[in-house]
Structures are given as structure tokens and as C-alpha cells.
Design a protein around this nucleic acid. Structure first.
Lengths: 375, 375
DNA sequence: CGGGCGACCGCAACCGTTTGCGCCCCCGAG
DNA sequence: CTCGGGGGCGCAAACGGTTGCGGTCGCCCG
């Protein structure tokens, strides 16, 4: 049995190789039809509409195809005719490979992949160089629609996506793009909730670590002006939430130090933490707009001998697995569900409604890195 | 003459527009040419060969395109004509979404993505349902080549890939497929090295936890016969390496218990550990064929009150970040480099050599979970 | 024996571009 | 005035398939 299987496999492979080896152009639907003495329609039907021709003929077609090394209808030609590519494109903020470095992006991707595989459609990761003006890659992508993940405002690539006559759904940002669906969370409200938690614990002197606010690198303190004009809406909204929450608790936001980091890594978080606390040793709570930054800050705090949460509170945002392991107080957002919802929104285009926005719930996870300020 | 031709296009387009006003037929190269009173060639050149027409006309073409909402040449039609899709397909062992759950796969993907973005080509994740016989997805993928990641022997999807007249490079398994490049590591030698390390420490009574050996679920002990006939070559080779290494140290391999798990999760590793130690409490070292399993085993061991490495040695394979954090003794393999190398092998097809195999180095990482057996 | 009915298969019109050449015309040199 | 040359643009043949319909033919039923 196993032997049988193997020999069949070997034969199959050899045959495939032979087909490829030949320098002559690979067989086409037409040449196959000619060889068989039937019409192209019939050959096409043999592959796509088996009920349209007799089983005997169908078998003959398929056998001859195998003999001639015809690999079946060319996917590109088929796509051209049917106007379906069988794939959704994904546009990412960063370089393509970044998607696999950020745990939140990975979760999102997993969800999106789930939706795709349910639908039987592929997932095309569109190659974008962050600095390259080359928008060609998105114009060249053969896809039935785009999912856009967390793009800054006024992005060229995103503009190129909107140019394409295919449906688009964005995740997180930008918001308020006419005629495209969107899935996200209420970043601002989530941050208000977190702020209330911290204010309730008694924190009044806080510091903030946030991700990149605009496309220019600014590894340092971010003025209120810079905060308000951030090109990354998500960061803008999270900061706004903090502002609202702490302002309500009597804190003058303009006195709150906000340290920005261009790179989104734990190392960046650690370094930002040092920068913050060196200049503002009085802060009792360090609020980070992402778990990655918070984990870095946490590490740096403990490396500096600070007791967390006894002496200092550290919080994050996102709810990645590592944050849970570290006992980090954070806001959990359903990243995987966002990905799946984005995919479904794009693919389940049964009821072509007016543009919808889907806001998923978040959850404040109070864990072991937040406590009342040291008295 | 030209007018005649043009008017035909005009009529054609008008007709199309009238037929589908509701869905607003998008402009085409031809309709744009008709509107401008130039040939399709010229419009095409405006996009692809700017030096082939006067700057003034080019500008006029582009402006008119914008006015008409022409999104530029259709990617699919272009692909058909140029015979280039601008994307590489990726075929995975598991369901598409699994790729984002396994740290090793993620690393591989990151490397592959790096190679792709360097080359400006997209990365198409081909949707495969593990159980579905539907091979159609790979036949339908519009790509210039395939990267195949760690497929079992005799896989239908892989066979379908070989059918396609495009270059293929496989990662890890299967090996020895004629005419396809391959990148991987020497799994067997790496395991021999690990075995020698453990044997050198004095371990003679060992137990093994391994990943899925075949497509049928077998969560339990795996006979030597099952080990030898495993459909997953990587697992087969790793076990063979252990066998070689420990046999050389005087161990009778047929007495070594090997526990198999279908699912590749920490929970599975933990459970497998319990199953192993319940039946074989005498083992002094638990060797796992992956870090994930090892991390689960480690957790289970400590939960059971076993001192690692004082009382028990646990080792993994792969060298994922979590393993480093946990201080796990393991074999590090360059997963990211494998991905990048696979991509480069596929894309840098300058010298169409005979099929190459690229074996990357591994490194034994002796850390804090291995030590001499308790006396 | 006529009519109707499936089962099977082919016609022909697209799908939207790219590209190797060839043509035309204007311009400067001889 | 002739002639070579080159810039600028168009011709027409692919590229490889899909599909709404319509045609043919054997067979069954009344």
C-alpha cells in the first residue's frame, strides 16, 4: 500500500518534471483541444463544469492533458475572464516583514487568514517599502479587494488602494474614509477607562510612552501640539483618551510628559522609560500606548531597581500574550477578531450596504503592575 | 482608418457603459485611448515606457485618466500579457492560519517576506484546508513561483504545485524532489550532536516527545516502525539522529519510549510529558523534537514538582525566543535565514543551475534545563 | 410516426494589456 | 534638393480562457 502510494507519487513527479523540462511552450487549452479534436469550450468545461460533458470525454480530456503536461487552465487568464482573482490584498503600515515582528499584527493576520481560508481565497501580502514612493506594487496586485491595516493619514499607498475599483476595508485607521468599511475599537474610550482606573488608585503624576506619532523620527518628548497633529490616528485617540480621563481627575494635561518612540520594540520602550524617568523622576505611573513598549519599560524599571507596582505603576495596551505572562495591567483588544471581521466584511459582500463601521469591545485587564502610588 | 477604429472603440465602450450603468463600468485602456483619440499603445506607453512618447502627450494621458477614473492598467490583464504575476506563492503544511500560531513558521515567514520585499514581489498565502482534497487553490494561484514550507511526503497540494510550470523551492521537507531547490538544515546531525551532549552528561534512560509523524492522529506512544515510516521527514530525521547518537552511547533504541502528539502546542507537550513519565518514571532526560513541546513539558515537569535540571533534563529543538527566555537547552536553527534563503533562491533565478540544496548551520544551545542525571 | 426532451458539445464574442516593428514626418547635413 | 536619421506614435497579433446560447441527435411516449 505504502509502496503503491510511493510509486504513484514518483511517477507523478517525474511526469510533472518532464512537462516542465520541455523547452517548448507549455500546452494550452487551445492546443489540447486541437490535439483532441474538440472545441476549447469542451476542454474548459472538463475542468469547470463537469456536468456539461460526458464522463467518458471528460476522462479523455483529463488523460490527454496529463500526457501533454497541460497544467490546467492558466490562473491569470482565468482571472482576467472571470474578473475574480481569488485573493484579498493586505496593505500594511510598515515594511512587509514587520507584520511578522509585531504580536498584534500577527494576531490580526491570523484572524484575517481564518476568514480567508473559510472563503477559500488567498491572502496577498503587498510589498511596500515605507520610504519608497513606489505605489506600483498596490496597482500591480491582482486581488478582489484590499484590507488595509492601520495606515497613517494621507498615506500614498492607501490612496493608491482607493484608486483601485475594488472593495476596501480598513482596520483601525484611518477613519472616516467615505465608502469603505472599517473595523476597529474605541481607542479613546478604552484609554479613558484605563485613566479612570489609575486616577482611582490615586495617580496624579503620570508619564506616557507612546508609539510613533508621525512619519518623521522623533525619539523624545512630544509636545501637545505634536500629539494633536499626529498622523497616526490610533495614537492620537489613545492620547486623547488619557487626556480626557486625567483631565477629569484634575490633572493638567499640558504638564504630563509624553515620550515618543519611532521604533516599536521592547528596547525602545526601555530606553524611553529611562528618558522619561530621568527627566521626570516624580511620576508614579508610566502609561504606555502599547504592550511592547510597556514590557520594555517594565524591564527597565526593574533593572533600575524600581518596585512595580509598589513603587511605580506600569500599564500597556493591546493585551498580547507576553503581557499576560508578565502580569501587565493593560487594555485587551480582540486583535484576532478584528482580522477575522475585516476579512468577513470584505468577503461577505452579500448585502452591499452603505459603508459600515464595526467597533469591537475592549476590556481593561487589571493585573499585577498597577497599584496605588507610593505614599 | 484610425478614425474608423476609434469610433468602433467608442461605440464599444458606450455600449458597455449603457449595459451596466448601475455597477459603473470602470474605464479601460481602450476607452481612455478612444477618449483621447490616440492608440492603446500610446496609453500603455504612458504608463510603462515614458520615454516612448512626448512629455506633453504623456501628461495629457495621465490627466485624462484621472478625470475618467481610470485606475491604470489592469494588473491581471497585464500579468496575462507579460507572463509575470509579481508574487510568490507560499504553501504551508497546515491550514493557512496556522502559520501565525507557530513561532518557527512566523520566523520563516519574516525571512521570506524580507526576500520578497527586496525583490518588490508580493507574497501570496495559498489557502489550503488540510483535510480538503481540494487542490484547486494552488492551481488557481496567480504566482511566479512557489515556496513550499515543510510538507509531508506524498502531499496532494505539493503534487499540484509540481504540476504548475513555475519554479519551486521547498523548505525542510520533502527532500530529494528532482529539479526543485531546497533549503533546510541537517536535522539528523543536529540531533546527533544533542544526543552526544546528553549522553556525555551521563543520560542513558531517555524519553522522547515528538510532533505528528503522519496524517492520522496518534496521541500516544509511537513504535519504532511508526517512527521509521513517518510521513514527516523532518521528524523522521530528528528521531533518527537521536537513535544514532544514543545507540553509539550504548542505548538500545527499541527501549526508548517515544510519545507523539498531533497538535503542536505547549498544552500538548505538557500532556505528552505526563503520559511519558507516568509510564516511564525512570527517564532522566526528556528530549523533545520542538521547543513548543519542550516548553510544555518543562511546565508540566515543574508543576509536578520535578526539579529541572537537577532531577530531570528537558531539551527542545528550534531555538525560538521563548525557549531562550525559559533557559531551555535546545538546538537553534536559523528559521529567518531559511525563509530569506528560500525567497532568494526562488527569485534570483539568474543562473538556472541544476537543483541546489542549501543546508544552513545549526547550533547546540546548552542552557539551564540540561544537566547530569540525578545519581 | 411525429413531436418533444434531454444530454452533449461548439460558436463566437469577449476579458484588458503588452510589444516588436513599421510608418511618417521633420530636420539638418551635404 | 536629396537623403539619412531619429523621435513619436500606431498596427495588429498575441496572452490563455470563460460562457450565454444555440445546434444536433438519439430516444421515449402517446
Amino acid at each position: 500500500m505504502a509502496l503503491d502510494r510511493n510509486s504513484r507519487y514518483v511517477a507523478q513527479v517525474a511526469e510533472a518534471l518532464e512537462g516542465r523540462r520541455s523547452t517548448r511552450r507549455t500546452a494550452t487549452l487551445a492546443s489540447l483541444a486541437a490535439e483532441l479534436g474538440v472545441s476549447r469550450t469542451t476542454v474548459s468545461n472538463a475542468y469547470n463544469r463537469p456536468d456539461q460533458l460526458s464522463p467518458a470525454l471528460r476522462r479523455r480530456v483529463l488523460d490527454t492533458a496529463r500526457r501533454l503536461g497541460y497544467p490546467g487552465p492558466d490562473p491569470v487568464a482565468r482571472s482576467l475572464r472571470t474578473r475574480k482573482a481569488g485573493a484579498v490584498g493586505l496593505l500594511l503600515t510598515e515594511a512587509l516583514s514587520y507584520a511578522f515582528r509585531d504580536p498584534v499584527a500577527i494576531q490580526f493576520l491570523e484572524g484575517l487568514a481564518l476568514a480567508c481560508e473559510d472563503n477559500g481565497s488567498g491572502l496577498l501580502l503587498v510589498p511596500v517599502s515605507p520610504e519608497a514612493e513606489d505605489v506600483g506594487a498596490v496597482a500591480r496586485a491582482g486581488v478582489d479587494g484590499f484590507v488595509v491595516y492601520s495606515m497613517p493619514d494621507d498615506d500614498e499607498h492607501f490612496a493608491a488602494v482607493l484608486e483601485r475599483p475594488v472593495p476596501v476595508v480598513v482596520c483601525d485607521q484611518p477613519t472616516d474614509v467615505p465608502d469603505v468599511d472599517r473595523v476597529g475599537i474605541d481607542d479613546q474610550a478604552a484609554m479613558v477607562e484605563l485613566a479612570e482606573h489609575l486616577a482611582g488608585l490615586g495617580h496624579r503624576r503620570i508619564g506616557v510612552l507612546c508609539m510613533r506619532l508621525s512619519l518623521d523620527r522623533n525619539d523624545g518628548f512630544a509636545s501637545v501640539g505634536r500629539q494633536d497633529s499626529a498622523r497616526y490616528e490610533v495614537q492620537r485617540r489613545r492620547l486623547a483618551g488619557l487626556r480626557d480621563g486625567f483631565t477629569a481627575a484634575g490633572v493638567d494635561w499640558s504638564t504630563v510628559p509624553v515620550v515618543e518612540r519611532f521604533d516599536h520594540t521592547e528596547a525602545a520602550g526601555a530606553h524611553a522609560f529611562e528618558q522619561l524617568t530621568e527627566k521626570h523622576p516624580e511620576v508614579t505611573a508610566v502609561v504606555c500606548t502599547s504592550d511592547i513598549l510597556a514590557l520594555g519599560a517594565l524591564r527597565a524599571a526593574r533593572a533600575a531597581g524600581r518596585d512595580v507596582p509598589g513603587e511605580l505603576t506600569v500599564t500597556g495596551f493591546d493585551g498580547v500574550p507576553a503581557a499576560e505572562r508578565a502580569g501587565l495591567t493593560t487594555v485587551r483588544q480582540p486583535s484576532l477578531d478584528k482580522g477575522r471581521a475585516a476579512g468577513e466584511l470584505l468577503l461577505d459582500r452579500g448585502d452591499r450596504q452603505r459603508s459600515r463601521t464595526l467597533l469591537l469591545p475592549t476590556e481593561l485587564m487589571v493585573r499585577a503592575t498597577s497599584g496605588p502610588p507610593a505614599s
